[in-house]
């Protein structure tokens, strides 16, 4: 993702080879920043895709995902310089 907002507390990576497109992460994501990709992976599944901004790094998508390594959640390592109010959506 090249368009990651540096203000986000979290970042999401999806292994599109492992994802089976069940959509549970999309349903679970509190700020609703995961979408279903239109294209198919080599196994014929549409896969989850991070919208590119707004991840809070809560990690619930990782927990509800049935594949062991399809989702990796990252968090910003150090405090952000400025916090824009309302950036961090809450469930």
């Amino acid at each position: 993702m090249t368009d990651v907002s540096h203000r986000d507390a979290g970042l999401l990576r999806v292994d599109t080879d492992e994802c089976k497109g069940c959509g549970l992460c999309i349903e679970a994501c509190p700020p609703k920043v995961i979408r279903m990709d239109e294209s198919l992976n080599p196994y014929g599944y549409r896969t989850a895709r991070y919208a590119g901004a707004g991840c809070t790094g809560c990690g619930i998508c990782f927990l509800v995902c049935p594949e062991p390594g399809a989702i990796t959640v990252l968090r910003a390592a150090r405090p952000r310089q400025s916090t824009a109010p309302g950036q961090q959506a809450r469930p």
Partner: peptide, 13 residues
């Protein structure tokens, strides 16, 4: 603004 460094919060156990 400075680059943010990311650390892994949740990944394959």
């Amino acid at each position: 603004e400075p680059e943010v460094t990311w650390e892994i919060a949740s990944s394959k156990p």
